[in-house]
Amino acid sequence: MILDIALLLLAAGVPYYLLLEKSTKFNSRHIFLFSSTLLLCAVLLSLFIPNEHKTVLVLISLVSAIFSIYKATKTTNFYKFGYYLIFVNAPFFILFEEEGALYSLSLLIALLGIYLIARFYEKNYGSANYHHITGITLVTPCVGTYLTLYLVALALYPPFPNSIFFLSYIFGSEPNLLWYIVVTTLFFGNFFLAMRVMRKTLFGRESSSIHYVHMTLKEKITHFLVVLTLLILSIYGLKETLL
């Protein structure tokens, strides 16, 4: 039981960010990195510990996820968006035990891409806030393309591994009422949050008060490697699911 609760905490099943957000020592970037590291620990831990999901724990993480969806709709900061998504997806990890590990790993890689985009915004536009940085699909196509790919992955669309692992696990499981609620919440929750970011920064008119900056070659290569990792995971996921 103690291990289960530890796993619940590590996998972001409770909204501990509420405490961290109040602290002056932690900014949103720190919370993002902290919660990602804990989730990674949970993924690694789940490989060694037989995780028997308890309905109560799934319920707790589900309530936390719904609350995090609400919080995520109120922010225009990439870091906050990133760590809220970790909390939104926690019920999946708790519900699907060790099978959810690869899904969480895919989530972390897609969020790594978001983290890099947030760093890019911070460096070039002063903060990771995307509120006024509109229309980047047309103005800075490279940033637009990579951000689109990460958001498509987070919105659970193929050919990205998040969607493939999601489908793979749900197709092979025995559904019950809680299962349906969790799957529907995550399916729409991730989708609405990713689409919201798309609408607010990828689309829209170019802002005349912003000096848009293009990616450097080094940044392009880094993002390319992230996308490549996602695609490699996709191929692995497809192999596991279909063959």
Binding site: A155, Y157, P158, P159, I164, F203, G204
Partner: peptide, 25 residues
């Protein structure tokens, strides 16, 4: 295969969305 069908079904949705919102401004 129903899983392949499900993947194609979803790939169609996202491609359509990005095409219809092609005029992003």
């Amino acid at each position: 295969n129903l899983i392949v069908l499900a993947l194609a079904w979803q790939l169609l949705s996202i491609s359509l969305y990005l095409l219809v919102s092609f005029n992003v401004s």
